[in-house]
Structure formats: structure tokens, C-alpha cells
């Protein structure tokens, strides 16, 4: 491999602006493509489950737990997908449910604290930072904050 010597001139700075703009666009489009591949099947699957009334049955099982978080039983699937896959899968799972602002805000905080655990626990273990303890803290904190927000936030806004 040959290395090209680096020179710092004013023209190079303007090229680097264009280059990073282009690089950002490339990364952005690629990310969108990967998100599209995850979100589309999730959104379609949830829509079908809702249409054939299976979502209702599943929601029935989960609603006793979800009500502590101020969330309908249907959102249990979104939480599970958020924990295991990522936030985008979670969003695709609740986007069609017609949730209230309060419910989306609670979900945003809970899932923000605790998500993508397979991937992120692997990243944290590379940091040599007690990944299992951090995983436990994230899940417990998220459930605690969700319940706390449900107690504090006014019912209608």
C-alpha cells in the first residue's frame, strides 16, 4: 500500500466539506435502507395481527402489566421489539396503534433508556464495563421510570 502525503491547503478544506457532506448523505441513505428493511415487515405484521384481532388477544395477556406504565397491552410487543431488535422496530410496532401523546412520551423515555440489548450489550462488553450489571440496571431503571412517569404525568395532555 502506498501512502499519499498529506498537505493542508485552503482548497483541501473546501473539498473536505463537500466530501463529508457526500459521506453523510451516503451513510444516511444506507441507514435509511437498513431501517426500511426492519420497519416494513414489523409494521405490516402488526397491521395484520390487528386486522385479524390477534393483537387484541395478545394485548389482553399483557395489559395487567402494561397498565402500571400507563400503556395499553398492545404496546408490549413494541417494548419487546425495542429491547431485542431496536428502537425503529419498536416504533414500527406502535405507529399504527393511535397512541396518545402521553403514551408515546412514556414509551420514548422507557425505550430510550433500555433498547437493542443484544447489540448494545456486546458493545458494552467490549468496553470491559460489567455488561450484565449495566443490562440489569437499564431494564430496572426503564420500568421504574415508566411507572413513575405514569404516576406523575397528568392524565390528559
Amino acid at each position: 500500500m502506498t501512502e499519499t502525503p498529506e498537505t493542508h491547503t485552503s482548497t483541501e478544506i473546501s473539498i473536505s466539506f463537500k466530501e463529508s457532506l457526500y459521506e453523510g448523505l451516503r451513510q444516511g441513505l444506507y441507514s435509511f435502507y437498513t431501517l426500511f428493511k426492519i420497519m416494513t415487515p414489523v409494521y405490516i405484521l402488526i397491521s395484520i395481527l390487528k386486522e385479524i384481532a390477534v393483537l387484541e388477544i395478545l394485548a389482553g395477556y399483557f395489559s395487567p402489566f402494561m397498565k402500571f406504565l400507563g400503556l395499553p397491552g398492545e404496546t408490549a410487543l413494541a417494548v419487546v421489539l425495542g429491547w431485542t431488535v431496536n428502537l425503529y422496530a419498536a416504533i414500527a410496532a406502535f405507529a399504527g396503534l393511535g397512541l396518545s401523546i402521553r403514551q408515546v412520551t412514556i414509551l420514548a423515555v422507557m425505550l430510550g433508556i433500555s433498547h437493542s440489548h443484544f447489540m448494545e450489550t456486546a458493545i458494552i462488553s467490549r468496553m470491559k464495563a460489567r455488561p450484565w450489571l449495566i443490562l440489569l440496571i437499564r431494564i430496572v431503571t426503564s420500568l421504574f421510570i415508566g411507572a413513575l412517569m405514569n404516576l406523575i404525568l397528568p392524565e390528559n395532555f
Binding site: 406502535f94 401523546i101 414509551l107 420514548a108 423515555v109 425505550l111
Partner: peptide
């Protein structure tokens, strides 16, 4: 991405 679904940004 959550604001786009209706979440209140400053609370989040």
C-alpha cells in the same frame, strides 16, 4: 424519531 410519533421532546 419519537417526537415524530408525538412525544414531548423536553420531557423525553
Amino acid at each position: 424519531i419519537f417526537i415524530a410519533q408525538g412525544a414531548i421532546w423536553w420531557i423525553v
